[in-house]
């Protein structure tokens, strides 16, 4: 399964005299689509395997929109017949909407056949992107604004929805907020400091301050830290604070913190 996300949200702007309820409005939304992974280009072989998979799934894929993943066909010598593929999928009551992970040649051919091209991301790519982003932030040539965002007292990620990686310690009085995503810290969160994320928080160093995950209500968010010495931890608003009373089994241990119902669990990571 793959998430296809569109961030565009464009409405038609009309001058006041011609103002009326718009007949068409573009909005962004998130869908989960099934992926058809192809490893060969021979349509006959594809049909045999596809028929088998579909018979197992009964009516589940009836008229389902589908994304075709070409990652495994990139190295092949033969070219994919996208028009033939489209006909084959239609025959089986599937609606192919786009392709992802194709070579430039494959993408051109797919476009010609009327497929959308999705910028599908494998896990590897996401990690790579995150690494590049944090590298860009570290480089001395990054803009003044970027540095300020990164270093200011209330650090706020302007790239909403992506993972934020912090390399410097978060010190007393400082606050970091990863809006719409996860927060990864590679240095200590000191007493009097606050780290906040809409998603999960990972701290590969001591947590001596406060950590609040899932602050916009994500009950599945978790906090992981390498050395539990926190003043306060919270997940989706359920919090617990400590005054020199961290239980021995988690004190200075690697722990994960998560919610079950309204119960906040802090468990050692062994």
């Amino acid at each position: 399964m793959n998430s296809v996300q569109s961030n565009s949200s464009v409405t038609n702007k009309l001058s006041p005299e011609e103002e009326r309820a718009p007949a068409a409005v573009l909005k962004g939304s998130v869908f989960t689509l099934p992926i058809l992974k192809l490893s060969r280009c021979d349509l006959r072989e594809i049909e045999i395997d596809l028929t088998q998979s579909l018979s197992a799934a009964l009516d589940f894929f009836n008229h389902a929109p589908l994304v075709i993943d070409l990652a495994l066909t990139q190295e092949l010598d033969e070219a994919m017949d996208f028009i033939g593929l489209q006909a084959l999928l239609h025959k089986h009551q599937l609606v192919p909407v786009g392709v992802q992970n194709g070579t430039p040649d494959q993408i051109a051919a797919a476009r010609k056949a009327g497929f959308a091209v999705l910028t599908g991301q494998t896990i590897d790519k996401i990690i790579e992107n995150t690494a590049q982003k944090s590298h860009a932030k570290e480089s001395p040539k990054s803009t003044r604004q970027q540095r300020e965002n990164e270093r200011s007292q209330a650090v706020d990620d302007d790239h909403a929805g992506s993972t934020q990686v912090i390399h410097q310690p978060i010190r007393s009085g400082q606050r970091v907020y990863a809006r719409g995503g996860d927060l990864i810290l590679l240095a200590a969160v000191n007493a009097g400091a606050e780290v906040i994320a809409d998603g999960n928080i990972h701290i590969y160093a001591p947590l001596r301050g406060r950590a609040l995950a899932g602050v916009t209500g994500d009950m599945d968010a978790r906090i992981f830290c390498q050395c539990m010495d926190a003043e306060l931890v919270a997940i989706a608003g359920t919090y617990r604070f400590f005054e020199d009373d961290i239980p021995d089994e988690i004190n200075h241990k690697s722990v994960q913190i998560y919610l079950t119902g309204d119960q906040l669990n802090i468990r050692p990571l062994e």
Partner: peptide, 8 residues
């Protein structure tokens, strides 16, 4: 603690 604050 105050030194930590000033380092920030």
């Amino acid at each position: 603690r105050d030194s930590d604050r000033i380092l920030g």
